[in-house]
Amino acid sequence: MIDLKLDGLRVLVVEDEMMVSMLIEDMLGELGCLVVGPASRLDEAMALARDADIDCAVLDVNLGGQPIFPVADLLRERGRPFAFATGYGDAGLREVDRGSPVLQKPFREGDLARILGELQAAVD
């Protein structure tokens, strides 16, 4: 069931594991969202976070050993809400990022929809 609030939501996906990225893309498609990216490297993610027309983002905390925090900072500067996707909860986050939405890996489509609803509310 598609939540109409999420229909057409432009979501930047940053994830370095191809299978996880494909799963997130499929979930977003089922929810009626538009996938931006996905980006699997920090430089790609930075370029999309800076230049792409997005409403929000789902960020893997660790991209091949590189922390995602420069992308989070850029999105924060642009006023674009984001959620971290991690298997470590908020334990791996910086102090400035505590309180940000976190998708605990592995997550289900319902978890993603709930977080996207929170991010959408931040956009409105």
Rank of each mutant, 00 (worst) to 15 (best):
M1F: 15
M1I: 13
I2E: 11
D3F: 11
L4K: 15
K5S: 14
K5H: 15
L6S: 00
L6G: 00
G8K: 09
R10W: 10
R10M: 04
V13Y: 01
V14E: 03
V14C: 06
E15L: 08
E15S: 12
D16Y: 02
M18Y: 14
V20I: 03
V20M: 12
S21D: 04
S21N: 07
M22R: 12
I24K: 02
E25H: 01
E25G: 04
D26H: 06
D26P: 00
M27H: 07
L28S: 04
L28M: 04
G29I: 00
E30Q: 12
L31E: 01
G32D: 06
L34W: 10
L34N: 05
L34H: 09
S40P: 01
L42P: 01
L42T: 01
L42Y: 04
L42K: 05
L42R: 07
D43Y: 10
E44S: 08
A45H: 05
M46Y: 07
A47Q: 05
L48C: 07
R50Q: 14
A52H: 08
D53F: 02
D53V: 02
D53I: 00
I54G: 02
I54S: 04
V58N: 03
D60N: 05
D60A: 03
D60T: 01
D60G: 05
V61C: 08
V61R: 02
N62Y: 12
L63Q: 02
L63A: 03
G64S: 03
P67Y: 10
P67W: 09
F69H: 14
P70S: 10
V71E: 10
V71G: 08
D73F: 06
D73G: 12
D73A: 12
L75F: 11
L75T: 01
L75C: 08
L75N: 03
R76H: 15
R76K: 13
E77F: 15
G79S: 10
R80I: 11
F82M: 10
A83P: 07
A83C: 11
F84A: 00
A85R: 02
A85Y: 06
T86D: 10
G87Y: 13
G87A: 12
G89S: 12
G89V: 15
A91K: 14
A91C: 09
E95T: 11
E95K: 15
V96G: 13
V96N: 14
V96T: 15
D97Y: 09
R98T: 15
G99T: 13
G99A: 04
G99V: 14
G99H: 09
S100R: 13
S100N: 11
P101W: 07
V102K: 02
Q104R: 15
Q104L: 14
K105N: 08
K105Y: 11
P106C: 12
P106A: 09
F107I: 05
F107G: 07
R108E: 15
E109F: 10
L112H: 04
A113Q: 09
R114V: 14
I115F: 08
I115E: 09
L116M: 05
L116I: 05
G117Y: 05
G117F: 03
L119T: 01
L119V: 00
L119G: 01
L119S: 01
A121N: 09
A121Y: 02
A121I: 04
A122D: 10
A122Q: 11
V123L: 03
V123C: 06
D124Q: 12
D124P: 00
D124I: 11
D124T: 13
